[in-house]
């Protein structure tokens, strides 16, 4: 469950009962995973590039991978 405020996005994570306050690019990354299918960091980046201009893909990949690691640590996504 999410809610957009003027300066950030709120995520309510039902299983943990935790509220996360996130800013770009987290909501956008989560959106690419909405179908629930497993995806690699490269897949996520490809999907992001289709919608946003992220500059050189090589520079963005480590950033996406790091965000995915953080999201997995919070339990918002799972490592397959």
């Amino acid at each position: 469950m999410s809610h957009i405020l003027d300066d950030m996005v709120l995520l309510y994570h039902r299983s943990s009962g935790q509220t996360h306050m996130v800013i770009s690019p987290v909501p956008e990354i989560l959106e690419t995973l909405e179908d629930g299918q497993p995806a690699s960091a490269r897949d996520v980046l490809q999907r992001l590039l289709r919608r946003y201009d992220l500059g050189p893909a090589d520079a963005a990949l480590p950033e996406v991978a790091a965000q995915l690691t953080n999201l997995a640590a919070l339990g918002l996504i799972r490592t397959a």
């Binding site: 405020l5 300066d7 709120l10 039902r14």
Partner: peptide, 26 residues
């Protein structure tokens, strides 16, 4: 005061926000 800051300050000012779960969030 921005919405994000307001939200954060109000969660701290609420004693049952966490206990209410999703209805509290809404």
């Amino acid at each position: 005061v921005g919405q994000g800051e307001t939200f954060m300050r109000l969660t701290q000012a609420s004693t049952n926000y966490v206990a209410l779960g999703e209805p509290g969030f809404a």
